[in-house]
């Protein structure tokens, strides 16, 4: 199976609309030849089977043409009308062209537009149609790389603090550790908001007299305990 190359090669389809002498067909209609060329220079030919595997289909196979060595093709015995010329290769995507042959033999080529078929998007003579590259048949696997992790903002917001918490204690000595612990505890005490009254205190004060003493007692107990700790 041929592997798809990594670069997109640029191909162009050169279509030369030439008026050749009209031949009489069996039905009496004049018959003309559609001529064209693929613009592939020899050093660009990364595919070895373009000449073998390419088929020129007119109107879905009503007429068939083959490529010569110089990447040109001719399709004979075409009566006047409008035709869709598709160059078909399993790997390469060539742009289809609409070719109109009038009853007098004048040929013109235009871009295929199925929504507005009468639009005259002329392809200039001699023509160079824009390339379409290779058929992209496959989906890409989702890959992950290390950079995804390192540069992600969430990693910085959450991972960094975790690292700090883990790394900092190692860097400090034992005394510093104890001091920091005390500071942290103080911060916690301070952070406990005294302004907000305890709900239980409120309810008991509302309902009776005794609880405030108890609450006061417990408060003084706490205060004594804190003082004791501070003196350690």
């Amino acid at each position: 199976m041929t592997r798809l190359p990594h670069s997109i090669l640029m191909f162009g389809v050169l279509l030369a609309a030439a008026v050749t002498s009209a031949d009489e067909g069996a039905s009496g209609d004049a018959e003309y030849t559609i001529e064209g060329k693929l613009a592939i220079s020899p050093h660009q030919d990364n595919f070895t089977d373009i000449l073998e595997a390419t088929q020129i289909l007119v109107d879905g196979g009503q007429h068939i043409g083959f490529l010569k060595d110089d990447y040109s093709f001719e399709i004979r015995n075409v009566v006047p009308g409008s035709y869709l010329v598709q160059v078909s290769h399993p790997l390469i995507n060539f742009e289809p062209v609409r070719v109109d042959i009038s009853s007098k033999g004048a040929k013109r080529a235009r871009r295929v537009n199925n929504v507005q078929p009468h639009l005259n998007n002329h392809l200039p003579y001699p023509l160079k149609i824009k390339v379409l590259g290779l058929h992209n048949y496959f989906q890409q696997r989702e890959t992950w790389s290390a950079t995804d992790f390192i540069f992600h903002p969430m990693v910085w917001t959450m991972g960094l603090p975790v690292l700090l918490i883990m790394v900092l204690p190692k860097m400090m000595s034992a005394e510093d550790m104890a001091q920091t612990q005390r500071e942290v505890q103080q911060m916690q005490n301070a952070a406990r908001m005294p302004a907000v009254p305890e709900l239980s205190e409120m309810m008991t004060s509302f309902l009776g007299q005794r609880p405030p003493q108890r609450g006061g007692a417990s408060n003084t107990n706490n205060r004594n305990r804190n003082e004791r700790i501070r003196h350690d």
Binding site: P161, T180, E183, V184, Q186, M187
Partner: peptide, 14 residues
């Protein structure tokens, strides 16, 4: 915010 809090905590502690 994190820096502020940790900064507030540290000076307070010292």
């Amino acid at each position: 915010i994190f820096l502020l809090i940790s900064g507030a905590g540290n000076p307070e502690g010292q």
